[in-house]
Design a protein around this nucleic acid. Structure first.
Ligand SMILES: [Mn+2]
Ligand SMILES: [Mn+2]
Ligand SMILES: [Zn+2]
Ligand SMILES: [Zn+2]
Lengths: 164, 164
DNA sequence: CGTCTTATTGATAATGGTTTTCGCTATAGA
DNA sequence: TCTATAGCGAAAACCATTATCAATAAGACG
């Protein structure tokens, strides 16, 4: 890609581009630099199977496992940046740490069912919830950033064991 | 109240009783002791105006302001206990700390709209969301504990200041 | 009411996820 | 290629929450 393409880049739809190009495009737009670390960190989040959620430590573990050595500061900074760019979603699943997932625009907004005992997270889709939240925000003059619907309960595996 | 009433207590509906009695009843049921601290901490949460949410530190500050000296360990333990008893709700509003609110059974389940910039929290009601979450949990064999729908955005006051 | 058992308290230390610091490195533009 | 500076990372700091443990007090029993 040459520099003369730069004006065209921002005009294209994200869906037409590879994830690497999207990242490059967004970083450029905001004046951020394209670094090996940011690309690798995003790649980890993209490679994860649908429905899995990673903590900052999980991300580093995966990077370490594939021979990459990236410091915690960099991981936290990159995750925040990617969230701000709308590439990742930060999940507050009531646990002590935050989780991150790739924000797939193709996939309808999904939500989470969490077992309070074992922490298992199950995803479910529902478009009405998202539009409800969107309306609520816009009606009050808020610009919308994210909707998170989190249901907490006890999974079939954990519920019986508590009554023993 | 005499000890001979104890059998009647657990038969009564919560709505007929004063909050202090409800607490007494629930603690008794589970074999916990009724302490000054637990009663004072619950009172703080009940006195708070509708729509306000308190962190553990907020609770201690209010207690200190009214001349009560209760240690942090006790406050955290009491908050967790009250949540387990279903008296309080623990909110994960995407912030770094957790917030607590009195779980009013009369009030329909409400949800939260949070400004990502200034942290302002606005409540809104919607019964469909709650039933959606409830169905989702039960369909998967989960017992339901809580549903939290949190919408993040920028409030009218914060949104403009970012584009300057 | 006094005694006993043990749940509870609270000052303090520890924990653990996240952020900050700051000297070094590498990106992007000239 | 050269330079300015955004970004990196090891280490320290931060901060909400939890664990410790000796002292205290709730509740049961007589
Ligand atoms: Mn998910
Ligand atoms: Mn509320
Ligand atoms: Zn479970
Ligand atoms: Zn705001």
């Amino acid at each position: 890609m040459t520099q003369s393409d730069s004006s065209k880049i921002s005009e294209r739809l994200y869906l037409e581009d590879s994830p690497a190009e999207v990242l490059r495009m967004l970083l450029n737009q905001e004046g951020f630099r394209i670094t090996e670390q940011r690309q690798k960190i995003l790649q980890v989040l993209r490679e994860v199977p649908e429905g899995e959620h990673l903590s900052a430590e999980d991300v580093q573990d995966k990077l370490t496992a594939s021979g990459e050595k990236i410091g915690f500061s960099t991981i936290y900074r990159a995750l925040h940046l990617l969230v701000d760019l709308g590439i990742l979603r930060e999940l507050n699943l009531s646990e002590e740490r935050k989780f991150y997932e790739f924000c797939n625009p193709l996939m309808g907004a999904h939500h989470h069912l969490v077992c309070a005992e074992c922490g298992t997270v199950t995803e479910f889709e529902d478009s009405t919830i998202f539009s409800l939240g969107s309306n609520e925000a816009l009606n009050r003059g808020f610009s919308l950033l994210d909707c998170q619907f989190t249901v907490r309960g006890l999974c079939p595996h954990c519920a019986p064991s508590l009554s023993v």
